[in-house]
Design a protein around this nucleic acid. Structure first.
Lengths: 210, 210, 210, 210
DNA sequence: GATGAATGAGCCTTCATTCAT
DNA sequence: GATGAATGAAGGCTCATTCAT
């Protein structure tokens, strides 16, 4: 029993070791230029060993996606704990996502990668974990909206649906950053992004009574 | 005289022939699995010939992206010509983008690909053409908004900024389709998408006076 | 007759135009990275036209070799015209070759290239011209030696043989420049080169009588 | 224990196998026409395997250069062991280099190739090995000169500098073999070469006293 | 004389994955 | 459990040369 636990712990340690190497390379060279052989060398393990712990290269990066979602989750969670109004929380969430996309560019890229890639069959356990992480984030955002609705600040919208819509909009707008110099013709992307976030939040608000 | 023109026309025909082969493969196997060698074989041309007409693989796919934008442009343009109210036009635009992303999935993927890929240096002419295409679409959407503002139906927003935001939001939401079975937990993606579009449009509207 | 001459003159002009383009590219990108297609584009001619005037890529660079030899020839010729003693002339010749190898690096490389490449069958006329150029240089050097012998400054050596030996030694020593940082272990290549030239000249001199 | 050693030995064997294939092709088709794919086919290995043992094509040829230097080194070493006078040893060295350039033409070509090619960045270990090999040869030649100086046969020259000069001269003169039929106009290259070697050695000698 | 489209073999290199030890 | 040698298909791309117009 103790043995089994130790085994388990060692196994986890190895996986972390591999992930650390993959992360390091991801940050240095991007997802496309990171090969399993490099990961193995960096992790000081044989390639075969990598394959013992992970089914494929995809799976490793999938795990890294989880890390990225975790980082974002913690940011939103912090925002949630603050004693600010719901609309401010949503606004902060928007700002946080844009910041995340530039400060944690590699993690954002990986999320993007999996969003744009036809689903690969992966160990369902890992996949579920990722999905749960996404759901958690959605719940946090949904919570902000629910709070706003309860307080009477927001209209009676479906919090979950609105949260999805909110995040989806954030995501697309973030991607448009790339168009700043061309299609957006000099419009400052950050301004537009913030403007858009504000619009989305305003759209939520109850029309002022008088 | 006529000779030069004929040459020009034949050259255009070759480019179309190559593009047709690339398109066919793109639709069959996706962007990642389509290689220049395959395109050459499909087009029944030597690899060198491909490179005579296109500088690189990227350039071919860039041209394909242009096609995709064109298709979407024409849809929006048609919506614009209809004698409907501005809010209806925006709604239709949203519907059209979701439809485009599923019916012209490969074109959507290619747009996504370039949105997620670090910019490559390409012959500026082609690049400018693409950018212009994107701008045209933005102008159409902006036109709908401007009309709404003029009519007093919408608030006094900056049409261009709002158009960018609108399209950006549509784009991100479209990508979330992939999460339908997992994170969205049974929420129907299309419903959410339409709901989101409606919200965005409602947010635009002047608060009802009374 | 006049027509024929004009034709001839135009033909020469075209060849010069091609050579100019090739030279420009040679200087910019080196011999290995210069392709016929690039030469054609630079010369604003069709590739076919290039092949009308030159049998092959090799032939073009062969012509360029001639230019290089010409440049070197003129330097030695100038040295010959100076009113200096034969030993000084040889010394200057050595210095000139080393200078030539660095200041006209591309021409030197081309000479090297043809010296190291298994002979290609080329238009014999061109080949003869090149050979004549080489012989001229050898004659100049041989002349210096002959003068020294006549004056009693040098031993009774065979001027031609010694000239060949002199140039050959210069050539090999010049190539050893590349070893400066490694095999030569900090010995300054230029010093060694000059030292060697001096030795070769000293070896020529009559042992001092007394 | 024995396992690790066996592995090591097998690995060495593979490298030799690859080198053998490369050597065979080099001798048959020359350096320019020998490709990695051919080497792999000849070695009956996958291309990937070649790259597992060698970083690049250059590295393989670099190894071959080492072989060539080794062969020449052993010849000079043998000359050094003989009980002959220093001037005879230098004379033999000259003869040996000319012989080497014709009997081991491919090895000579490869040395030439690296002397004429802009330095490539290679695994420093191999590069250092090559450089050391070159230095060893230089040391042997320098030793002959030093001995001659000690014996009072040669003037008080710097042995190392003179060795570099000697080898450099040999190298260049060897290359002029190619000009035998043209520029040298019937002068027998071998005669000139030997004549030159003799001159170089005579130049070293102390002027006879009387 | 001049053109330039077309070729296609060939280049070097990468890399996810397997499997015998 | 761990290793790492071996694979080989596939990748994007170059280029000297030809030939119909």
């Amino acid at each position: 029993m103790g043995l089994k636990e130790r085994r388990e712990r060692e196994k986890e340690a190895r996986k972390r070791q591999i992930l650390a190497a993959a992360r390091k390379l991801l940050f240095k060279k991007g997802i496309q230029s990171t090969s399993i052989n490099q990961i193995a060398r960096t992790a000081e393990l044989g390639v075969g060993t990598i394959y013992f712990y992970y089914q494929s290269k995809e799976e490793i990066f999938y795990s890294l996606q989880e890390e990225g979602l975790d980082i974002f989750f913690r940011e939103i969670d912090a925002i949630g704990r603050a004693k600010t109004a719901p609309d401010a929380k949503l606004r902060e969430t928007g700002r946080a996502y844009l910041r995340f996309s530039s400060e944690q560019k590699d993690y954002f890229d990986i999320i993007n990668y999996f969003l744009a890639t036809p689903t690969v069959i992966l160990g369902s356990e890992l996949k579920q974990q990722i999905d749960r992480k996404g759901s958690h984030i959605l719940e946090l955002i949904g919570g902000f909206i629910r709070a706003g609705v309860s307080e009477g600040m927001f209209r009676e919208v479906d919090p979950k649906k609105y949260a999805i819509m909110f995040w989806g909009a954030l995501h697309g707008l973030t991607q448009f950053k790339k168009l700043e110099d061309t299609v957006l013709e000099g419009e400052n992307h950050q301004h537009i992004f913030n403007y858009a976030v504000d619009q989305l939040i305003d759209g939520l608000k109850r029309p002022k009574e008088h």
